[in-house]
Design a protein around this nucleic acid. Sequence first.
DNA 1: TAGGCCCGTT
Length: 652
Amino acid sequence: MGQSCLRPLRLNSRPFSTASTEFSILCSQGYIKEAFNKFTFLIWNNPSHFSCLLQACIQKNTFSLTKQLHSLIITSGCIRDKFVSNHLLNAYSKLGQLDIALTLFDKLPKRNVMSFNILIGGYVQIGDLDSAYKMFDEMGERNLASWNAIITGFTQFEFNERALSLFTRMYGLGYLPDAFTLGAVLRGCAGLKDLNKGREVHGCVLKLGLDGHLVVASSLAHMYMRSGSLREGEIVIMSMPAQTVAAWNTLIAGRAQNGCFEGALELYNLMKIVGFRPDKITFVSVISSCSELATIGQGQQIHSEVVKTGAICVVAVVSSLISMYSKCGCLDEAEKIFEEREEADIVLWSAMISAYGFHGRGKNAVELFHRMEQEGLAPNHVTLLSLLYACSHSGMKDEGLEFFNLMVEKYNVEPQLVHYTCVVDLLGRAGRLQEAEDLIRSMHVKPDGVIWKTLLSACKIHKNADMARSIAEEVLRIDPQDSASYVLLANVQASAKRWKYVSEVRKSMKDRGVKKEPGISWLELKNQVHHFIMGDKSHPQSEEVDVYLKELIAELKLEGYVPDTGSVLHDMELEEQEYNLVHHSEKLAIAFALMNTPAGFPIRIMKNLRICGDCHMAVKYISKKKNREIIVRDSSRFHHFKDGCCSCGDYW
DNA sequence: TAGGCCCGTT
């Protein structure tokens, strides 16, 4: 410390060390003013007390006191002390006053590597990675913390490639990474789903003996799971020296992200049994698993646990609850939770807009979007995606296209592939197939299988068999194993009665070993999940269901229902075609539900594939004949059947 | 002295 920055003023007779301890306690508890007023003499005696106060200012977020301390530091001459000046720099930077920090930095009599590191952190905090890197690049001397600051900065904002290349550079220069570096680098690998690089870093972790570090091990497991290697991830967690809630969260999230939703819920129950309390992150993972499985009973149970633990105050948890209720078919409950919200958060609004979209309630989605704008919230790319989706699934072509045009113009959000996919859907439904194709070919992003498949579906709706052939080529070039595209293509050709081409499609499926994904429907009844698959007799009531369904179909035929065999491949005998149609999994599930629930009770069915034209027609008849509300969630949206009509307006 | 790194939302 500088010689002349001390002005010894001993005004208190208490022993110095006792006063110093009391001072530290006051600071750490946030009683900054009290500490300052009572122990001013300490500050004058030892400038390190300024550091203590400044730390407290950061915690308490008090800018005014920081400024007061700043003038004192100047008048006392302590600005020459590099500890104190760095703490001051850090306080400004943390309090979001980077401009003041930079001015101070320029005037500092003594700077060191820490001063630079603090400013790099400050730039990262405001998301200005370019300036952060410039500062990093221009600093003369660097230490490990400098590399960590810039690497974690890049991974925080998903610039994962840059983070990894910096890591390679740093390693090459002989810096040994620590737990901070490795945590960030593994996060980068996870973001890129780069299993090879991740394994390389794992080697590095072992070499440095950091495999026992809880955060490093957790990150390592997360990296494996995000990259699709559930097993390796679970092995890492199992061999961790101690279990933490974060480790359980990693396991649960890993399963959920790999489509193993039942497994995620099993682990959730297990973690509670072994005595860990789920936290907000656990809840988000398990609630989204319930959304996918549409197991409303479990979802409600978790909802009540969320309320009990107080996690209901967390915006992310509430958003996932909204999404869960809507994906379970309970739009009313989703609305209720949304209206009870305590915070204005874009994610909450997006969740609700998306919920309306799933249920084909485009008008509500648009209304909500305008309400959101009135409240002064700016939409992000997800909000706009939900809105476009809602428009396309409600037949609101003009509104949808209008919003797409406003994306860049008004909302300043660059469209991504998913937005284009919605627009292709909008144009496709409107029969503007050529425009849709032109859009795909002129986008600045590379098309994927999904966007081509969207156009292929539109070709099916508008029975354009020629275009379907050329578009199918595009889909199958990208994903030659996608059974749904073959089926779609075969069906378009079948509806144009091009039987020769239908057989060709079937043959190429066979040659390439592509099998049609079996349709599965399921529903929850008294907290138990019942699955139905065509031809599968494993359900205890399957024989009774078959008999009931046969009678039901006969009844429907009297009402005017004619099975539509257009959705089945043609070379089957008519009777066999009818058998297959009658036994589609959703019909089985609905028959089961009719048999096992009281009259008037709404029926909720989930299906892994899209509902076919024949089932859609049959369910309309069932809803009228049996006077039941039937809600079917297929792989793309909700269908609410009531009194012989469907909410999708026969457009899906 | 700083960074508090991993797991979650629409």
